[in-house]
Nucleic acid binder design. Sequence first.
DNA 1: GTAGGATAAAATGTACTACAAATCATGGGC
DNA 2: GCCCATGATTTGTAGTACATTTTATCCTAC
Lengths: 278, 278
Amino acid sequence: MYYKSWARQGPAARGHGDCFHRLFQSTTCLPVSVTGIDKETAKVKPIATRNLHGHVIRELGRMIVSGEIKPGENLPREELLAERMSVSRTALREAMKVLSAKGLIESRQKTGTRVRETVHWNQLDADILAWRCESMPTDDFVEKLVEMREIIEPAAAAAAALRRTPEQLVAVGEAYEAMAAACGLDAWTEADLAFHEAVLHATNNELMISLFSVIETALGAYFVLSARTAANFKYSLPHHQKVYEAIRRRQPVVARQAMQKMVADSRSNIRRHRKAKA
Amino acid sequence: MYYKSWARQGPAARGHGDCFHRLFQSTTCLPVSVTGIDKETAKVKPIATRNLHGHVIRELGRMIVSGEIKPGENLPREELLAERMSVSRTALREAMKVLSAKGLIESRQKTGTRVRETVHWNQLDADILAWRCESMPTDDFVEKLVEMREIIEPAAAAAAALRRTPEQLVAVGEAYEAMAAACGLDAWTEADLAFHEAVLHATNNELMISLFSVIETALGAYFVLSARTAANFKYSLPHHQKVYEAIRRRQPVVARQAMQKMVADSRSNIRRHRKAKA
DNA sequence: GTAGGATAAAATGTACTACAAATCATGGGC
DNA sequence: GCCCATGATTTGTAGTACATTTTATCCTAC
């Protein structure tokens, strides 16, 4: 349930992949059995792969976000593009409307469909964030994600300490307990995400909650980075405990500071990993 | 150009309005000349009204966000809904895919299409924010918007002071000059929005920039509230000057404080207006 | 020769039909 | 009474045809 947008990436939905890489070449790709693809990917990834235009959204979205198709460039016209992706124009158009709503593309009659400048992209969209992470996120991007965390999460912790309901506190507490009890990295990451989501929920501000997509992506990138040195993956548990306690005791200032420290710690960890890699 | 999502509301695109209010009644509404509608609304609002499925997105989106159709409820089946809105199933489906991407609805075969719980809504989406404001935003919602401003903008001002380029500083400065020179409320609001957008841009963090939709909506709601007592609409100019100066001098702490004060001031103003109204 | 408008061409926008796929409900066989 | 098959219902996909918009071109008029 958790870890949604991150789970969207991975080796799933590769069915059309080889095909789509040649979209802009003149060589036509052979139509692939759609049923076969669905069955194959269904094992790994039963959701969001069931419908065809979901594939198209993902593939086109990834190509645009990864820079394979650059802003200002035009996409092939619908009929041609549909043929090359071996889907109907109907399905392609439904996908393009979604990408258009995300601010990635812009269609006009006669002119065609072109990729918009990155300033117009809805950068907080969960899909776009996930697509940006799919091909190993750049250090630059990770830095920006951490900066967002530094701004959002301390404020959220403070607000949660002020306004949480008893039920919301329980949710935070349960997530904390799950982190403490986690045996493997998978259980830990899931509980960690649940913890941060619970804090956001406890703010009782739905705008705040929607920012979880950013936190989720940031944590996901962090997990990937620190996956190798995962020997003591629980080292941040005390930080979480302090945040939880402060929220329980309704101490906004303490909660803010604790969360601030947690994120700062995570940031320095990332920097350390980066140096080790370089 | 600015004031986009706010401008989307207003009395535009009422063409189908009377029709759509009866979507769930058994009475069928008369089909309306589509061409006539487009021509009529084009005077007021040439953008986003050109295409038919844009209408459908807005109308359905508004009905859902306003609570006219509640989470858990099912929409009429596509064929029926298309007929009642006097559009083709094709156009309706393209609109529904967009609403689905915004997290408002969820479609499954045989089951039909149902409105999702509000936690799944992409609350930061510019359209959703605008729709929530269309029918006089609730005090509760305005409060949440201000809270977001209090979190985002001081941090953005600090980051801008640290990382702005000369060009970005010029943009902030020009917006400030426009505010100082503004004669009417319209010119002021436009310049004000430009100022806050320029500050976000100066952070050089595109995730930050995407949060402009929230700031925009918050400021828009504020302008509407304070429109009556607009005698001295320039009273916040000194606040803006302080922010600008701090960004110019690369003083992040000062910039943060100045922005903090500006937003706090705006918040207390809103409370005053609310009391006066009550 | 240039300006202007009519016209054609090319892309997306919309409508309609037909069928496929998924899923829930119903009913029959055991 | 349970299980499986079968049908019904709704969304999903394909394909065709035409409308609309906008650019480019050409042709005429001055």
